[in-house]
């Protein structure tokens, strides 16, 4: 027994280590995701029996104007969220000074990251309120009237995404700050000797060293953008008239408000496919980076 154990422990123990996490993750997350694909092939009201309908949900989806609204809005979210890495980097550069008191200011910058979405939603709801919001206060100071962003189909997605951007910037800022902390001082010093300063130093010496962290920041930001749900649910419920829904929200709405779980699952599956494309890109980048490190 003991010999058997010794011969095999080099793989048995690691396997045992891996199993709890794997089983939990597999049964809860992965199995549930696959089951969603299965549900998308049915007509189901969430209570009664499921009726097999094949691809009917997808065919209807292809002809659903709301679906394209959601898709377009997901793209808008993605584009707006792409501001988070550069702004986060800029803020990280600003606070990366060792001055007494800077640490507390740094921490204050991170605060939006730890706020609940419900909180951020409440906060920005007041910023945007057309009657007494911060924005109106600002416009009023110049004698103007602020546009009612949350009830304008053109602006609403931008406004909600901007609220979502707030914590996202903080997240990117933290990542970049961590990256700046681990810069290679020799390279910087060498750059200084070569007369590189300011922008050129950033461009040619600093940024290349931040490529890893930049990659992570972009990845986290893309996920954040595609996953956006809470902010929409809290701030607008997808409105006005569904003009700021994204795929995740439309899925929720079809399932929960219209009781069309099969149709909702079909939307989820489309999101799933988009995500998989992105995940493949990410994993590819990850593996490549690892190889070049090795």
């Amino acid at each position: 027994m003991s010999r058997l154990w010794r011969r095999n422990r080099h793989w048995v123990t690691p396997a045992l280590f891996l199993l709890p996490g794997l089983i939990l993750f597999g049964t809860v997350i992965l199995a549930a995701s696959i089951e969603t694909v299965w549900i998308s092939l049915h007509d189901w009201d969430g209570i009664g029996a499921k009726t097999w309908v094949g691809l009917a949900n997808y065919i209807e989806l292809a002809d659903d104007p709301q679906f394209y609204v959601s898709l377009k809005n997901n793209v808008i979210w993605l584009l707006i969220f792409m501001l988070a890495p550069p702004i986060g980097l800029a803020l990280a550069l600003i606070v990366n000074q060792q001055i007494r008191g800077m640490r507390i200011l740094k921490s204050l910058f991170f605060v939006p990251l730890v706020l609940a979405t419900v909180t951020v939603g409440v906060v920005f709801g007041w910023v945007y309120d057309p009657n007494f919001g911060l924005l109106q206060l600002l416009f009023g100071a110049f004698g103007g009237t602020a546009p009612a962003l949350l009830s304008d189909e053109t602006f609403v997605t931008f406004a909600v995404a901007a609220a979502g951007l707030w914590p996202q910037i903080a997240f990117c800022m933290i990542l970049f700050l961590a990256g700046l902390n681990s810069l290679n001082d020799d390279l910087i010093a060498a750059g200084r000797v070569d007369g590189a300063r300011g922008w050129r130093m950033l461009r040619h010496v600093v940024l290349p060293q931040l490529s890893q962290v930049g990659f992570i920041a972009i990845a986290v930001t893309v996920i954040g953008a595609l996953r956006s749900f809470d902010m929409i649910a809290v701030m607008t419920s997808g409105g006005p008239y569904g003009s700021c829904t994204v795929l995740a929200y439309q899925m929720y709405q079809e399932s929960i408000f219209s009781y069309r779980f099969g149709y909702g699952a079909a939307i989820a599956t489309v999101l799933f496919v988009i995500m998989i494309v992105f995940i493949a890109w990410y994993l590819n980048g990850l593996i490549k980076a690892e190889r070049s490190n090795a």
Binding site: P240, Y241, S258, Y259
Partner: peptide
Amino acid sequence: DPDMAQEGMTALQEFMVK
């Protein structure tokens, strides 16, 4: 029907704006 109501009220809101 609840499904119809959801679509209907959304559409009526849209009509009020556009």
